[in-house]
Structure formats: C-alpha cells, structure tokens
Computed example of a mutant assay.
Amino acid sequence: MNTRYNYLIFLLTAILIASCGSEKTENTDTEITTNEVITISKSQFESSGMELGKPVKMNFTESIRANGNVVAAPSGMAQISSLLAGKIKRIAVNVGDQVSKGQILCTIESTEFIRLQQDFAEATGMLKASRAEFERQKLLAGDNIASQKIFLNAESDYKSLLAKVEGQKAILLLLGQNIEKVSQGAIQSDLNLFAPIAGYVANLQAETGAFAEPQKIIMELVDLNQLQLKLSVFEREMTGLKPGLKINFYSPNNTDEIFIGQVVAFSRAIDPETKAITVIGSIQQSEKAKLISGMYLEAEIFTGEREVMALPDEAILKSGETRLVIVRTSNDANEMKFITKEVQTGSNSNGFTEILNPEGLDNVLIKGGFNLVME
C-alpha cells in the first residue's frame, strides 16, 4: 500500500483551480490504484471546497435506446404512376407543393388510352344488340321455334361481350373516367392522374415530355398528418417494451430539440440479420410540421422506474475500465486520511451514477476527488 504526502502538490493544484474561476474539471481517465492512501490537512480540505457524502436512494428512470426514421403511415403515402403508356404532357405540381385529394397532378397523352375508350364505346353499342338477340333466341328456344344450338351461340356471344365491356369499364373507372360519357362517344386524348390522398409532393421523378411507362413512379406524396416513428430496438434491450410507453426522440444534428411520442405497436418477430424488432410510435400532432419523412433520429423509450443507491457523477473516478471512489478512513485533529476503493457502477441518470456495492461507503469524497489524486 503506497502512502503519498502531497501537501505541496495539492496546494499548487488548489491555486490553479482557484485561478481558473468557474471552469469545471471533468473526471477523465487517469491512472489510480485501488487502496491508495492519501493524506491532507483539515485546512486543505476546507479551503478547497471538498465535500463528503454517501450513496443515497434515488428513483432511476429505466429506458431503452433506439434509432430509426420518421416515416408516413401506409395510408399516408402514395406513389403516382400511370396504368397506361404515354407521353407526359404537363406536370401540375412541384416538389414541396401541398395538394388536396382529387387534385390533378399531371396529364399524359396516350394513344392506348384513346383506343381503350374507342373499344369500350363500340363494345357498349354492340352489347345492346347482342343482348337483344340473346333475349330473342331465348324466347324462340322456349317455344321450340329455334334450335337449342342457335340459342346457346347467342348466349355465348352475349356473355363474352358483356365480360369484355365490364373489363374495359373497370379500367376506365380506375383511370377516373366518366363511363356514361365514354359510352356515348366522348373520347379524350389526355389522361389525368389525380392525387389519391391529401399531402405534400415528396419526390418528383419525371419531367414534361418524358415517356411514362406503366407502373413507373412519376412522383410520391406524403401526408404529414400521418407521420410516425419507425424504430429499431435490439433483442437484448426489449424487456419491458409495451404500447403506451413515452418516447423522447431527436435528430443527431440537433440534440437540444426533443420531440415527444408514444409506443403504438411493435413487431412480434426478430429480424435474423439485425437481431432487432421494429417499434412504431406516434408523434404529437403539434410537432409533425417540424419533421420530414425519412428523417433519421435517435430515441429513448421510457419503460419505468426503479430504486437504486447512487452517488454524484463527480464522485466517480475513472482508471481505464475501473471505477473508484475516495473514502475517508480517519479524521484526526489536524489531518484527514482517505483511501481509494473500487466500486461497481450501473446506469446513469441526471448527474448521478448507480452504485451496485454501496456497503462501507459512508464517507465518500463527493466533491474535489479528481483534483486530489492528480499529480
């Protein structure tokens, strides 16, 4: 066991600290050995503002660390593409524009669209004649005037044409067309694409004059009112996770602005590659306007509280992987003796560190310990 009488060094250190005004010394790593004895005078202890204390009971908030993105709910996202091929005649919006549901987003010139309308109008007219012939042959067959074969052929022709018309009608309805007008021969050359949801144009991947291929994305819409959190939580940290828990989240680029959310749901399967589960969280409505879809964030999910014994962070000294405190062992008339003692630490909260072995720590130097061991 080494004994160090560092009066002179301690006095010089105290003078340097006093000259630095309000600057705070951080308990960074330094080489300290366990059971190291330090002796100082009482006047040194008092003049340097040192304080003694002991571990106190505190309620530490338990939390889970997570990261992820701000995303729109499935019903709050829309990818806009054309069902038919054609040339983009006009784009009516730009990135960042707010759009309402049903608003025209772009117009496509499509010969395929023209042919579809023509075929539907012609087939609709033919269907009336086919239905009439089918009904006539049905009556004749019932009176044994016409052969059953002729009736069956008429029935087959009618049903085949009916299926064709209904199929064309379904496509035209998907394209937002007025079936009654098309059936009467009102043919349009321009195919308008409409906004299926209200929101903002998040992405635009085409320009006027470009060829629009079926199913190729032209633009994307996002409803900011339906933004939510999509977080990843590792398997080892998911204990206590449940719907309703509070979430604090922030952008790593601006850690001072904290947003508040709540756990809504989480997946019941662990990703075999990341060893994590997906957690979906809600966002307060008033804060959604400050966020962007796709924004990366870090989060803390609060799972509850537990009672611990803790010391101020300043009382904990770091020496590599070892954590130590300075404990007073004697208090004579003119001098005070201290010894360094290794401690096992747990979590941290609001400037305090959990002590897992608090026994025998009744007189811990909770202020000024770092400067005392520096040489």
Rank of each mutant, 00 (worst) to 15 (best):
L116P: 02
G86Q: 02
T111L: 14
N334T: 13
V264D: 08
Q137W: 14
Q226A: 12
E213G: 12
A121E: 10
S330Q: 13
E36F: 07
E300Q: 09
A210G: 03
F113P: 00
I80F: 05
I270H: 01
L105D: 02
G351H: 07
G176L: 11
I145M: 13
A289M: 14
S110A: 04
A73I: 03
K42G: 15
A85D: 00
S100E: 04
M58T: 11
T124L: 11
V71P: 03
T274C: 05
L227E: 10
I9H: 02
K275L: 10
A92I: 12
N357S: 12
L372D: 04
S75K: 12
E305K: 15
D143P: 00
A198N: 05
I247H: 04
M126I: 02
D223I: 07
G369R: 11
S189C: 01
I270C: 03
T61H: 05
N253V: 05
A92V: 10
S319W: 07
R328H: 07
D190S: 12
F352Q: 03
T25S: 05
E307F: 05
P214L: 08
A14F: 08
L84K: 02
A276E: 05
I91N: 01
A212G: 03
K164C: 03
E180F: 00
L291I: 05
Q226V: 01
Q168A: 00
V56Y: 11
N371G: 13
R236V: 15
Q79H: 07
A72S: 10
T13K: 15
A14T: 10
S75E: 15
L241A: 01
A333E: 11
I316P: 01
G294V: 02
L139G: 01
A333I: 11
I355D: 08
E359C: 06
F352W: 13
L84S: 00
K246F: 12
V70D: 00
F302N: 04
S183I: 05
F194K: 15
A14Y: 07
R236Q: 13
E237M: 14
Q188N: 13
L52M: 02
I150W: 09
S82T: 08
G320S: 09
D223W: 07
F234H: 08
R268W: 01
L365Q: 03
K288G: 12
F113G: 00
A186M: 13
I108C: 05
Q262C: 10
L365N: 02
I17L: 05
S63R: 12
V95C: 00
F113W: 02
G86P: 05
K138T: 07
R328S: 12
E257R: 13
I283R: 03
E180Q: 06
E287M: 11
A206Q: 07
K87R: 14
Q228V: 03
T111Y: 15
E36Y: 08
S22G: 03
V56A: 15
G125Q: 14
P272C: 09
V308A: 04
S156A: 14
